[in-house]
């Protein structure tokens, strides 16, 4: 199979599957004559998306901003912490286990506590950050430690300073791992934001997409639930592809994962 036709298949097949699913969904709703409060058809969901665009787009912006802030903080925090741990073993031994504890404690359980102690927006952000930063930390740590021994010896031979080793050897060597961590963090930042919004929503405030879903649920406004869910899902997809693209553009010149090998 040629590369071009392989590529087309990889785009075409999921699209066809999606189209078939939507048609099946529509058919089920029509054939069984399901009322919208049980299962709205795809047409109604699309109409709701357009009619409620004012509310939904405002909610989308709120969720997007939270996700983006959490992602950036997770990226910066995760990479910086990993660098600190890499430079000081004592610091790593003292703090790394606590990062793991933070990670393995379910965020849904932490969120209500954070909402008590922090202002609404800060709590939501903190939740999303806690979920998203760990993969960045773990992957960057792995990357900084997986430097080729001979290359490290070479730097030693030429009496490189700690800073030179970090900037010219460890960070470039860790870059593929860092980017892998960021790809995971992108998705998790959105999940963290949604979980936090849902917890905050029940506390009586919030206006993001997840809050709109919960609110529509209480009011049995099922089509709007679906519309908001659709937007969340699209947001996740966009984040995934943007980060995959960034990874590809950064690594395509030299890393096996991104560079296409001509046979």
């Amino acid at each position: 199979m040629t590369l071009a036709s392989d590529r087309i298949l990889r785009l075409l097949l999921p699209a066809i599957f999606l189209a078939l699913s939507v048609i099946a969904w529509d058919l089920v709703v029509r054939v069984f004559d399901l009322p919208p409060y049980l299962l709205p058809g795809p047409g109604l969901v699309a109409r709701t998306l357009v009619e409620d665009w004012g509310v939904l787009s405002a909610a989308l912006v709120v969720t997007l901003v939270t996700t983006l802030q959490a992602f950036l903080l997770a990226a910066i925090g995760g990479v910086l912490l990993a660098i600190l741990f890499n430079q000081s073993r004592l610091l790593e031994y003292s703090l790394y286990p606590h990062a793991v504890i933070l990670q393995v404690t379910p965020i849904v359980a932490i969120a209500p506590l954070l909402l008590i102690y922090l202002p609404q927006q800060a709590a939501v952000l903190a939740c999303a950050w806690i979920v998203a930063f760990f993969p960045v930390l773990a992957n960057t740590t792995l990357g900084l430690n997986s430097v080729d021994h001979n290359l490290a010896d070479l730097f030693r031979l030429y009496r490189a300073t700690r800073m030179q080793v970090l900037l010219r050897l460890k960070l470039p060597a860790a870059l593929p791992h860092i980017l892998a961590g960021l790809r995971i963090a992108g998705g998790l930042a959105l999940i963290g934001a949604v979980v936090a919004e849902l917890s905050a929503g029940s506390a009586g405030a919030g206006s993001g997409l997840a809050y709109r879903i919960a609110e529509s649920g209480y009011r049995l406004h099922i089509p709007r639930m679906f519309a908001a869910l659709l937007l969340l899902s699209l947001t996740g997809i966009v984040i995934y592809f943007v980060l995959a693209l960034v990874t590809h553009l950064t690594l395509r010149r030299w890393h096996e994962s991104a560079a296409r090998r001509e046979a």
Partner: peptide
């Protein structure tokens, strides 16, 4: 004032040939 050639090429994959060769000079 020592140069070392390892059994494997041991080049930095992220740098070009010129970038790899200039490393000792840049470090100094």
């Amino acid at each position: 004032d020592i140069g070392f050639v390892f059994q494997e090429p041991t080049l930095m994959p992220w740098a070009t040939v010129a970038g790899n060769i200039s490393l000792p000079l840049e470090l100094r």
